[in-house]
Computed example of a mutant assay.
Amino acid sequence: MRIDIITVLPELLKSPFEASILKRAQDKGLVSVHLHNLRDYTDDSYRQVDDYQFGGGAGMVLMIEPIDRCISRLKAERDYDEVIYMTPDGTTLDQKMANSLSLLDNIIILCGHYKGVDQRVRDTLITREISIGDYVLSGGELGAAVLADTIIRLLPGVLNDETSALTDTFQDNLLAPPVYTRPRAYKGLEVPPILLSGNLPEIEKWREEQALDRTREKRPDLLK
């Protein structure tokens, strides 16, 4: 998979992809992540990427020209399955969407900034708009990192145990059951005996019951 991220703040995005699972996935050649500074696609000495709104109003708007140049150049080099715009009014990211996106080959992620992008970008260049929640960030960079993480960890070979992703919260519309590790007892708190029994069928049954109970208690909406 290849992920191209277009941003006015590439330095904000470097760190997440230089550590942990995301770096390991790139080192293995399972994914390649490329950051594109939108200012590199301007044609003036000020490298201007934003301007005032027509009609007045507070906040600057990212211009269509540098965005169009960047996306056009990328598309001239390869085909893309999706051109995604990170925006608070997009479709809320969930595990089902992440699963679907992880099956693609090449995607572009455009990070919004300031008051957003010229509407003509959204009308003609974007194929999908995604939000990571009902709140507003300073820009789309952190949202793009979240989206990339949810996708990359699902790629075959990224996690040491591929079955781990299949038992994550939300994969089957249930929250994950509680988990425990050593020590078996700590300040009077004991690990449930069933987990020490070695009876795998009964352990799986217990985990399923715990997942259902936890979902019923914390997120009953998922059971609808």
Rank of each mutant, 00 (worst) to 15 (best):
A165V: 13
A185K: 03
P178C: 03
G140V: 05
H36D: 03
K14M: 11
R214M: 07
P201W: 09
R207N: 00
D81S: 05
R153D: 01
P66L: 09
L30F: 10
F54G: 00
I67C: 05
T124N: 15
Y52L: 02
P16H: 06
P193N: 12
V8N: 10
E208C: 02
E202M: 13
R182G: 08
T124Y: 15
W206H: 05
F170T: 01
D40M: 13
P183W: 03
R214E: 08
G116W: 10
Q48E: 15
Q53I: 02
G143I: 05
V179Y: 14
I3F: 02
M1I: 08
P220M: 02
I71C: 03
Q171C: 10
G55I: 02
T92P: 09
G198K: 01
D43S: 07
H36C: 03
M1P: 09
A211Q: 13
A19F: 15
G116F: 04
D161A: 04
L195F: 15
E204C: 11
V31S: 00
N37Y: 09
D168G: 03
R128D: 06
R216L: 14
L30D: 12
R24E: 11
E82I: 12
G29P: 13
T127M: 11
R122E: 13
L35W: 09
V33D: 05
V8R: 09
C70V: 04
L103N: 11
D221M: 06
K75L: 06
P16A: 12
Y186Q: 00
A98Y: 02
C111M: 01
D68T: 12
F54W: 08
F170S: 02
D89H: 12
G116V: 10
I151S: 05
H36K: 08
S20D: 02
G29N: 10
E208K: 14
I132H: 08
G188C: 07
R128S: 08
S138G: 05
I151A: 06
L174V: 07
L189S: 09
Y180T: 10
E18A: 15
T181H: 03
E202L: 14
D40S: 10
L166K: 13
A148F: 12
H36W: 13
R128I: 00
E162L: 00
A165R: 10
P220F: 01
Y186G: 00
E190L: 15
L175T: 01
T127E: 06
I194L: 09
L195P: 06
N160G: 15
I71L: 04
S15T: 14
D50H: 11
H34E: 08
A148T: 14
N99D: 13
I194E: 06
M86H: 06
K14C: 05
L200D: 09
T150Q: 10
T92H: 05
D134F: 05
K96Q: 09
Y180Q: 11
N160I: 07
D123G: 00
N160D: 14
I6P: 04
E141T: 07
K205H: 13
E190R: 11
K96P: 00
D213P: 00
D51S: 08
N99C: 04
R39T: 05
R128F: 00
